[in-house]
Design a protein around this nucleic acid. Structure first.
Lengths: 345, 345
DNA sequence: GTGAAAGCGCTAACAC
DNA sequence: GTGTTAGCGCTTTCAC
């Protein structure tokens, strides 16, 4: 921790005056690599001392203006702040904020909407240098980003457009989760996704992982993946003549609700049915019973996305497609809790 | 929705050129009230047309530089993003963001720490115009804000210093919640606060409300407010020779955990014990059983805080204490769910 | 090795 | 009524 000096409005000129040089010399010392210009070690030291002594910090805005770069990146999402951006201490934010802060980038969070252009104004007013798009890149957003020629990284989404993406490897993850249930002796395992809420590439991928695991276990005939609304699904399950003994739920929000729904009708978890889901976010650990989940590598994804973006900003290519890089993260982790147990009959 | 024109880098000069006037005229039209200068309606209209036609938007940074104000406000908090800032769609953010956005203020979220001065650098680099401090104003933060002479509003906290604050009226809220339990016939009602986690002025206030309600019901002797660690409290309650029939929990996080703890030891909610808490945040509605809570007026608080802050920025007073205004919000709401029920024995 | 000067896009005082 | 001018704090080119 440096001394808590008054973080006053010291300017470059003050530093220059104090060290008896011009502002341009100070600027060089502060911004350019030492090799790229010539200056006596003496002067350099004098300048550095003055900077330290005055507690000088560059004015972010003035610098942006002069450089013609805003040093701001926009984080775009549809609707309200996605829960995977942050849960508790973690989430994507935990990954990209430190990286961007480190690189002295400012972040603005931008909710996008089809029927308004507030968000376009915002991107425009702030002259953002680049964007991270979270969870999906819809067409009207893509159109704008392309027009603005903004470097873009898509996080946790897929797109037909030539855009770099950072994603979870969902297939393997879902397969692992399903295999956990299989290893407990379950055979009638359903999968549930509230497709009305979650329209996302990962739905198909997780289903695919579930199906692979089932097929490999010789249970292809048992495969059943429901896309009903929540209440309809509960009704379907409860009244099934062959009720499943386990269910893989696409997302923790529905899993939590499912526990409550089962409780209402007297179905015991895990005795009557095991429940497993994705995303080790609050409150999966604190519900009744604690949920077995897959921890997603959100922080890694976030930090990789930020690094990719910085890279794109530093090395702009005219040919957008060459910068496109697709990362898949597979360092998820199965966390077994009490919502899954051995099949009982 | 205006037409989606390319939000290009149109400058004031472009507008000036297009409408055949000087940049200062354009600037006047855009920034000053019509009464404060003279200009022919014709020219004004020509300028307005050009602005519209070119889709001109001022460069936020250039404007800040010229005005010497950053048009940025810092939202300060200790540790990680407080949950009351946002839960789901609501929370304090839902209150202040629209107000500040409307006033064209930018928000930066600043985690503060005693043993580092990153955050001071951040405030300093960005030359924030003012601050909102969330949940508590600790001394080392106050010292800095005072030194920087930053207008400040404290949200959901109290302070000895002369600072404007926006708070919940906790006493009445806790009293109402306790009265709900009393009206169900409960007499042995405990209160629980994990004081190791929550060190906050509202702890005492909520306790006070609880005590008032108990006293007025002639149950002063039954008052018991525990400050133990979570597990110790559970143990104390479970093994009490006279177990309470209801418990008021300071915060929803602990209430959720309490439900789980009771489930583990076979205590039924609400048959054996009723649980009531504060903060109608996720997942109180989805746990087993759904929790009775008080909805806090977070959005109102947030928007009031933002308005107060803008006011302070616009009308700076040399005498800080005169600007101090204390608001207490009491439009909370009791939401009764299944975790509270009539006393059974 | 170092500094002068122009300019980033805008605002505001002051001329005319 | 409208334009000129001088900055805001910084970067960068280029001259010395």
């Amino acid at each position: 921790m440096t001394t808590l000096t008054t973080p006053n409005q010291v300017t470059l000129a003050d530093v220059a005056a104090k060290s008896g040089v011009s502002t341009s010399s100070v600027s060089k010392v502060l911004n350019l690599p030492a090799e790229s210009y010539r200056m006596s070690d003496q002067t350099r030291q004098r300048i550095l001392d003055a900077v330290a002594e005055l507690g000088y910090r560059p004015n972010f805005r003035a610098r942006s203006l002069a450089k013609g770069k805003s040093h701001t990146i926009g984080v775009l999402f549809e609707g309200s702040l996605p829960t995977n951006l942050r849960d508790g201490e973690h989430g994507l934010m935990g990954g990209f904020e430190p990286v961007l802060r480190q690189a002295e980038y400012q972040i603005i969070y931008v909710p996008v909407r089809r029927d308004s252009d507030d968000w376009i104004q915002l991107l425009s007013d702030r002259r953002v240098d680049a964007c991270m798009v979270v969870n999906q890149l819809v067409d009207y957003v893509w159109d704008v980003l392309e027009q603005l020629k903004l470097p873009t990284v898509l996080i946790n989404g897929v797109s037909d457009h030539a855009v770099s993406t950072c994603n979870v490897e969902n297939v393997g993850m879902a397969k692992t989760l399903t295999e956990h249930l299989l290893s407990l002796g379950h055979q009638r395992i359903w999968m549930y996704t509230n497709i009305h809420v979650h329209k996302h590439y990962s739905v198909a991928e997780r289903e695919s992982g579930y199906m692979q695991a089932m097929s490999e276990a010789g249970l292809a005939k048992q495969i059943k993946s429901s896309h009903l609304e929540f209440d309809a699904f509960v009704a379907e399950l409860v009244h099934a003549e062959q009720r499943p003994t386990a269910v893989v739920v696409y997302q923790h929000l529905e899993a939590v609700r499912l526990l409550q729904a089962f409780w209402r009708v007297g179905i015991k978890v895990p005795e009557d049915i095991s429940v497993a889901t994705f995303n080790n976010a609050y409150p999966v650990e604190h519900v009744i019973p604690p949920l077995t989940t897959m921890r997603l590598p959100n922080e890694q994804i976030g930090s990789q996305a930020a690094r990719t973006l910085l890279e794109m900003i530093d090395h702009p290519t005219t040919d957008a497609t060459t910068t496109q890089d697709i990362s898949r993260f597979d360092d998820w982790e199965l966390i077994v809790r009490e919502s899954t147990g051995p099949v009982t009959k």
